[in-house]
Amino acid sequence: MANTLLVVQLAVFLVLITGWAMRSMSYRIARGRSYRALAGDERFGDDIQSTLSAIERERLGAAVRVSDDAYEGLKVKRRPHLSREQRRSIFQAEMKTRDEYLQTASLGIFHYIIIFIAFSVIGLVAEEIWMWVSLGSTESRVGVVWGPFSPLYGFGALMFTIVLWNFRTCRWYEVLPVSMGLGAALEQTTGMAMEYFWHAQSWTYIGLPDAITQWVSWTTVCLWGVIGLVYSKLVMPELVWRIGEPSSRMQTVLVGVLVAFMTLDLLMTAYSFYRLEQRSLGIPAQNPIDAYVDYHFNDQFIEDRFQNLVVGQQLDPNDRSQWRI
């Protein structure tokens, strides 16, 4: 129980600190600029634009009145900080606009790509922190051969987003069982796929009193339920609002490059495990691609890169006496 509460607290802390950082960065960037310039005119209605225009005129008027002797000779005016009232007005206008935007917004490939990549990194960082807190050790728990990504969390966030998007306005007791089922299905399907295709395992709940299957336990099912609830009510709406729609060619190009890289990364990872199994059977390289993979992603690389993964054998049962919490 203590382990579950600790993970929940860690997840809530990450959500809160991320939200605070995003709001703080928005206010800092907005100094001397209109919020419409920051978020894009196309996401604001006429009434919200009027409110923000009034705030902008007030700030511009203050900029004309504020001066500094050191800058007077240079004909440069000091850019004022936003007052507390201005920040509150901007925040209220943003919340109202966000709610209106989410009512009519529809998720697209642009949202899914960013969510997948972002949570592939966030999930990996959270798991590394959890390992250090619970066991006092660290190990490489990445899921691909290149980059700090764990696709399990990326696919999990993607699945939660697709399914829970229509549940974001439902009551908590309606969201909770759906999230629990999604998390259990994700772990069970991923564990079985790894075992079936590559004879590999990276986690097991065998040895724990609440284990349901090798890859699912009651503790993690409840944890997935809480995570899904927090995600659907707090994280997902803010995330979709912040992502918005691609408004520049640079954004489109950047997302396209990330998609190409992640696709290549996933394909190379799958092929590296394919060649790992082929080498264990004594089958030599049949073409230049096999030779490249055998040289750059050999057995030692796989062992060092995926330290929580075993291939061709069972993971040892869990021993809670090793946990320090």
Results as ranks from 00 to 15, higher is better:
Leu6Phe: 15
Val15Asp: 00
Arg28Asn: 12
Arg31Pro: 04
Ala39Thr: 08
Asp46Glu: 15
Ile55Glu: 12
Leu60Ile: 06
Tyr71Cys: 08
Leu74Ser: 10
Gln86Asn: 03
Arg88Leu: 15
Asp99Leu: 12
Ser106Asn: 09
Ser106His: 13
His111Ile: 02
Ile113Gly: 10
Ala118Trp: 05
Ser120Asn: 05
Leu135Ile: 09
Ser137Asp: 06
Glu139Gln: 13
Ser140Gln: 03
Val142Thr: 02
Met159His: 04
Met159Asp: 00
Thr161Asn: 00
Ile162Ala: 13
Thr169Ser: 10
Thr169Asn: 12
Trp172Pro: 04
Tyr173Asn: 09
Ser179Leu: 00
Ser179Arg: 03
Ala184Lys: 03
Ala185Phe: 14
Glu187Met: 04
Thr189Glu: 06
Gly191Gln: 08
Ala200Ser: 14
Gln201Pro: 06
Thr204Gly: 08
Leu208Ala: 09
Gln214Asn: 02
Trp218Val: 05
Thr220Asp: 07
Gly225Ala: 09
Ser232Gly: 01
Pro237Trp: 11
Gly244Arg: 06
Arg249Asp: 12
Val255Leu: 03
Gly256His: 04
Asp265Ala: 11
Met268Pro: 04
Met268Val: 05
Thr269Ser: 10
Tyr271His: 07
Ser272Ala: 15
Arg279Val: 05
Leu281Tyr: 11
Gln286Leu: 10
Tyr295Asp: 14
Tyr295Lys: 09
Asn298Ala: 09
Asp299Gly: 12
Glu303Ser: 15
Asn308Lys: 02
Leu309Phe: 13
Gln322Met: 11
Gln322Glu: 15
